[in-house]
């Protein structure tokens, strides 16, 4: 599903002419199989979010290649990657990243609009997805009128509505209380089990990481360990 081959990434910091190089990801390689839940763990500043951003195409690797579903995405243009994300990836963010001026319904509907799905089909798919996350009665609410857990469920509904084979989650439980966190993790496992969706979850919390079939630990931009935790 995902192949990360000898990927490195660095940032240039400071004024032009006086820049210093900061290596964030150093020669990392790993594979993610179809239907897996893989947790990428590490302390703050370890480079785990940068790794997710590289896989998402938000930034390009300085070296190495990334292959997703047999496509060499690290060579995609911005437009090609946008199209690829729309068809193949869903995102769950720590801060939910919902559009505040749109209702829960409109937020979930947005990927369908971008894909050009007809209005009638869109309506059915959006309502079905809101039902799946248990928010069918909150469809007209704006994000500011929803709790953190409800917002995260809207965010999950948005990620799932196009039924992508891969979902990338960046600290998905970071803004949730422990009870809601457990609900969300159970829901992720259920989706993985029932729909075969592959999840890559970035977390600094080892408890959250435990829902994964496999954990990849990053330390100072390097792959520290990779293995199965039960």
């Amino acid at each position: 599903m995902i192949e990360v081959n000898q990927v490195s990434h660095h940032f240039r910091l400071g004024k032009k002419g006086q820049q210093s190089r900061l290596d964030v990801i150093k020669n990392i390689s790993f594979h993610v199989q179809q239907g897996e839940i893989v947790s990428i763990v590490g302390r703050s500043g370890s480079g785990k979010s940068t790794l997710l951003n590289l896989i998402s195409g938000f930034i390009k690797p300085s070296e190495g290649e990334i292959i997703i579903s047999d496509e060499k995405v690290s060579e995609f243009t911005e437009s090609e990657f946008a199209d690829f994300r729309l068809k193949n990836m869903g995102f769950i963010f720590q801060n939910f990243q919902l559009i505040p001026s749109m209702t829960a319904y409109e937020n979930v509907e947005l990927p369908l609009i971008l894909k050009g799905v007809s209005e009638a089909a869109r309506k059915q798919m959006t309502i079905d997805m809101l039902k799946t996350v248990g928010l069918e009665h909150f469809q007209g609410h704006y994000p500011s009128e929803l709790s953190g857990g409800q917002q995260q469920r809207v965010s999950i509904a948005r990620a799932l509505v196009l039924e992508p084979p891969l979902i990338l989650a960046d600290e998905p439980t970071g803004s949730l209380d422990s009870e809601t966190e457990q609900d969300l993790l159970r829901f992720i496992q259920k989706l993985n089990r029932e729909r075969g969706i592959t999840f890559v979850i970035i977390t600094h919390d080892d408890e959250v990481a435990k829902i994964g079939n496999r954990t990849i630990r990053i330390t100072d931009g390097e792959l520290a360990e990779s293995g199965v935790f039960v």
């Binding site: 911005e78 437009s79 994300r85 990243q97 001026s101 947005l110 971008l114 894909k115």
Partner: peptide, 15 residues
Amino acid sequence: PDIGIMKAIGASPKV
């Protein structure tokens, strides 16, 4: 911020 979210979920620069 809204444009950033749209781009993240798959809106192409052309759109």
